[in-house]
Design a protein around this nucleic acid. Structure first.
Lengths: 203, 203
DNA sequence: ATTATCTATAGATCTATAGATAATGC
DNA sequence: ATTATCTATAGATCTATAGATAATGC
């Protein structure tokens, strides 16, 4: 029954990856260790040789989810280097993202729950959120030390994007969902100093 | 042990009120029927004479939470009739709201969870959200039938406010929390057509 | 007679632990 | 000899139901 150290580490990574998806889909309290381990092809008994507690996995899976989401942002931006903000708003603020919770933004899928988690989990989200802000700041040409409101515009943009996704997922009316995403995209692009320059390439 | 019909209805309302607070504080899955009923001074056995299921209470408590939150918005706006938007952003985007989950905005406290609930719960949130939009629209002087983007600005504002609160609650760094709220307030007020007119009374 | 609430419990699930097993790593 | 995983289980909790009780409402 024992497997090699390499295989054990691979299994551990699989559990974290599976958890990062299943937590986003069902919530931290919405899935038990038995089903999480089953999703990784293991049984529940193996869990506590790999993690200290469920909370330990919650923290690690949160970090994994944020890393994965940031990677997707960077990839989306890289596909349209002359207009990274437009590329990311297109990528983020659409109905596909609204329907696909497991692979979507972890702040949207778990933000409300994170407020009720301990400092370890919040630390994972805080680190990821700071990276989101750094990306946005760079794309809108915001200096990071130009006054008492560092990254203020980036913070407002991220808030608008996260809020629009949360709202669009909280209603039944699909038309209303779309309108939230469209209104957020309009607002974010209008607030970017670079938006006029990039407008041509977006049209 | 039996109580009067009047008392029974009063008890039912108490359960809904208690649930609307405890769900916001601990999440729909974070509190059981035993503790919910205990919070209303009853025992678990009385629950199913009052509600069809836990989900039934989740839907009713969601509606109650949104009604209560809308009432607070109206009250805040009424205290500063010449600048309702400024009054509501002050009331909503502050650290007290960030710390007080049980009485705060239900979209912030439960938004991520609502995406995983059934249509009844989403209907309660949808109705409340539409009322938020109507209030905001009125305050910024937005016509409700002036093009293909009805209430677009109100939608972006609500998204920004909800997102900022979710983000500010998801991090450990209190300074960062404050900056999200400040950035959101700046962004929302700058986007209002009436913001210049009201600027004087806000300074 | 009806019924709102109570105590008690069924049956499922949850996190965490214990001990057995079998393959690895020395 | 060590250990990653397995099966099994402890003990707590969850939603929901059953039957008893005692006050209401007719």
């Amino acid at each position: 029954m024992r497997v090699s150290r390499l295989q054990a580490e691979e299994n551990r990574q699989t559990v974290i990856n599976v958890a990062s998806r299943l937590f986003r889909e069902r919530g931290f309290d919405g899935i038990g260790l038995k089903d999480l381990m089953k999703g990784a092809g293991l049984t529940q008994g193996a869990f506590y040789k790999q993690f200290a507690s469920k909370n330990d996995l919650v923290a690690q899976a949160s970090k994994r989810a944020l890393d994965s989401a940031l990677h997707r942002w960077s990839a989306a931006a890289a596909e349209r280097p002359q207009d990274p903000l437009g590329a990311v708003t297109d990528f983020y603020l659409n109905m596909g993202h609204c329907a696909e919770r497991a692979d979507g933004c972890p702040v949207v899928a778990l933000g409300s729950d994170v407020a009720r988690q301990d400092a370890d989990v919040k630390a994972a989200f805080e680190a990821g959120i700071k990276e989101y802000l750094a990306l946005l700041s760079g794309w809108i040409g915001e200096s990071e030390a130009d006054g008492d409101e560092p990254e203020g515009k980036a913070m407002a943009m991220l808030s608008t994007m996260v809020g629009a996704m949360v709202l669009s997922r909280a209603v039944n009316d699909e038309q209303l969902s779309k309108q939230f995403l469209q209104a957020a995209a309009d607002s974010v692009l209008a607030a970017s100093p670079a938006s006029n320059a990039a407008q041509g390439s977006r049209q």
